[in-house]
């Protein structure tokens, strides 16, 4: 087929595209929240002492930092689905910056003898297993949305999808997790989200083809 002939075929398809990216993202993010929520309430549920926990700054901080991570990854992810669009990378530093500040405050608040026990916590393995469990369906939804777009850097886009899904999963996980120290969050939540980022990068490498 000559290029002229191909152009004739394509131009006959002029008109409104069948897909709309805002709608794709709305569906993917709604699906991601519902999926993570469903797994959370089916498998985990909130911790028993959530009433008291809600009155502590450390517990509330977990929701702030994870929500900020999720919310800041979304626009970057959306940009990565659009060829030639530069993502606003600096906003993704917001959550790490918050964590750094919280670490400093925590180190000041605790005596140095408490540092290690706060970091190790009581539940690290659960954290590493359950955040990926909560995040796996959201990650799939985000990879599907990327696939409807046109990511020219599929591995990177997949990794950011993993971070975004990890942030969302961590919001829910935070309500279950009995460890509230920023030292614990900075270590284990980050590792768990990194696992999802790696999974997303792998997924991006092999699934995102167009």
């Amino acid at each position: 087929m000559k290029t002229e002939e191909l152009i004739r075929a394509i131009s006959a398809g002029a008109g409104r595209p069948p897909v709309s990216m805002p709608r794709v993202w709305l569906a993917a993010l709604t699906g991601a929240v519902l999926a993570a929520g469903a797994i959370f309430f089916a498998v985990l549920g909130p911790r028993p002492d959530i009433g008291q926990a809600l009155e502590t700054t450390r517990f509330l901080f977990k929701f702030v930092v994870t929500a900020v991570l999720f919310a800041s990854a979304v626009p970057v992810l959306r940009a990565l689905a659009r060829p030639g669009k530069r993502p606003a990378w600096p906003i993704m530093l917001a959550a790490p910056a918050l964590v750094l500040v919280a670490i400093v405050l925590e180190l000041v608040a605790l005596s140095s003898g408490q540092w290690i026990s706060s970091l190790v916590g009581t539940n690290a393995i659960y954290c590493l297993a359950l955040i990926p469990l909560l995040g796996i369906l959201p990650l799939a939804a985000m990879l599907a949305a990327l696939n409807a777009g046109a990511p020219t850097r599929p591995v990177l886009a997949g990794a950011v999808a993993g971070i975004c899904a990890g942030g969302l999963a961590a919001i829910f996980y935070a309500a279950y997790c009995p460890d509230d120290s920023p030292l614990f969050v900075a270590t284990w939540y980050s590792l768990a989200i990194l696992l999802l980022a790696l999974l997303g990068a792998l997924g991006g490498r092999f699934v995102l083809r167009w």
């Binding site: 689905a81 659009r82 060829p83 030639g84 167009w210």
Partner: peptide, 19 residues
């Protein structure tokens, strides 16, 4: 097939080049 990833207020050159 990916024309929905171009936003009408964005320049078209960087989009075409990236694809």
């Amino acid at each position: 097939l990916k024309r929905h990833t171009w936003r009408e207020d964005a320049p078209v050159g960087p989009w075409v080049h990236a694809i």
